[in-house]
């Protein structure tokens, strides 16, 4: 009797987990499916075709938008990673007045509604005469990414033994040399995770981008948003599918590398 109950329990729990995964991945699966659909209206699947993938490469506006997204993502990630890493390092190394407040202030951009940040950035860009376009987008994206880089690097620095830096200096390395030969290699996994997070956030972002972009510098999410008003063509699905596959591949690769040891 007991074992039978156990068996039913086991079956139910596996059904449950399958349902969860189905719920998570079904929408994505449908997008992938409809990117191969011969019909332009994504209601029924009529037949299989690669047509949309070919058409995608003729759709200059869409590709241009995606190019913008990657460009903004890349540059803002580099900026946010450098600033965030240095901020985290400095704050963990030195004690100074107001450090507690700065720590708390770092959380605020993370928790306030994006729309507030978006409007504030817009106001600042207008006040300071920064032209609206890719530059303003990059500044905006770097701004909201910095705290996330700081958090991931902080986590890595929490387990960092300062005496390793002292040892490097003891052995003749100056401060900068110590940072690049000892500190940075040890905290690098945290820096890379922070960079990935920053990039993901940037590529994904709609609300802040909506306020801070200018004419002719649409990003991919903004373009898709715009298209929803007139109807999304399957070539968007095709691009989404490609992006999805690339992202999954990158995720698998980085997760595999994450298992390296932290300390000696």
């Amino acid at each position: 009797m007991r074992s039978r109950q156990k068996k039913i329990g086991r079956i139910l729990s596996s059904i449950y987990s399958y349902l969860v995964y189905l719920f998570l991945y079904l929408p994505i699966f449908i997008i992938i499916l409809f990117s191969f659909n011969t019909s332009e209206r994504n209601i029924v699947f009529e037949g299989f075709t690669f047509e949309w993938y070919l058409k995608l490469f003729d759709n200059g506006v869409l590709l241009n938008a995606y190019g913008n997204t990657l460009f903004v993502g890349f540059i803002s990630t580099v900026i946010a990673t450098v600033i965030g890493t240095l901020a985290s390092y400095g704050m963990s190394k030195y004690k100074f007045k107001g450090k507690g407040i700065i720590d708390i202030l770092l959380y605020i951009p993370v928790v306030i509604p994006e729309i507030v940040l978006g409007i504030s950035l817009l106001a600042i860009f207008n006040l300071s005469n920064i032209p609206m376009g890719l530059t303003s987008l990059i500044i905006a994206h770097a701004t909201f990414s910095i705290p996330f880089v700081v958090f991931t690097v902080n986590a890595r620095l929490a387990g960092f033994d300062r005496s390793v830096e002292e040892a490097a200096m003891d052995l003749g390395a100056g401060r900068i040399k110590t940072f690049f030969t000892v500190t940075l290699p040890i905290i690098l996994p945290g820096v890379i995770s922070g960079a990935f997070l920053a990039f993901t956030l940037s590529v994904d972002d709609i609300i802040i981008s909506f306020f801070t972009t200018g004419p002719g510098s649409n990003t991919f999410p903004l373009k898709v948003m715009e298209l929803t008003k007139t109807g999304v063509a399957p070539d968007v699905y095709a691009l989404t599918t490609i992006v999805f596959i690339v992202t999954v591949a990158v995720t698998f690769i980085t997760q595999r590398d994450k298992k390296k040891p932290i300390k000696g």
């Binding site: 033994d161 005496s163 390793v164 002292e166 040892a167 200096m169 003749g172 390395a173 040890i186």
Partner: peptide, 30 residues
């Protein structure tokens, strides 16, 4: 003077070996 300007060396309590370098590179660092 900074530690790297002094002709003394330290063996730290926690050893403070460089975890990302192999033994050869640890010893060769100086």
């Amino acid at each position: 003077k900074e530690p790297f300007e002094r002709n003394v060396n330290t063996v730290f309590q926690s050893y403070a070996l460089f975890p990302h370098m192999n033994i050869w590179n640890n010893v060769a660092y100086g």
